[in-house]
């Protein structure tokens, strides 16, 4: 059963479209990630994911692993 959740992560250290693209591609290809949208202006990554495969913490870690600073700002459950 798929348990969809939405999380917004604060991401620091992005300066251009290429940073955004690498995050979208890499995080977007993780198992359980359904959709990702990164905003350069707001420094936020909004991710829709399957809670049985990922958690806000694991996603935040994945972003940090790429060399960006990530913070859990808010998380909410979607239907």
């Amino acid at each position: 059963k798929v348990n969809l959740c939405t999380v917004s992560l604060g991401v620091e250290g992005m300066t251009c479209g290429s940073c955004v693209q690498s995050i979208e591609q890499r995080i977007g290809s993780l198992p359980g990630v359904i959709h990702i949208k990164v905003s350069l202006e707001q420094k936020i990554a909004t991710i829709i994911f399957d809670h049985s495969q990922q958690s806000p913490e694991s996603l935040s870690e994945a972003v940090e692993d790429m060399g960006f600073e990530s913070s859990l700002s808010e998380s909410s459950t979607a239907t």
Binding site: G13, T15, C16, S18, C19, G67, E69
Partner: peptide
């Protein structure tokens, strides 16, 4: 790498 954000990420990893 295309910008300082890229090189910053490389530095951090």
């Amino acid at each position: 790498m295309t910008c300082e954000g890229c090189s910053g990420a490389v530095t951090r990893v």
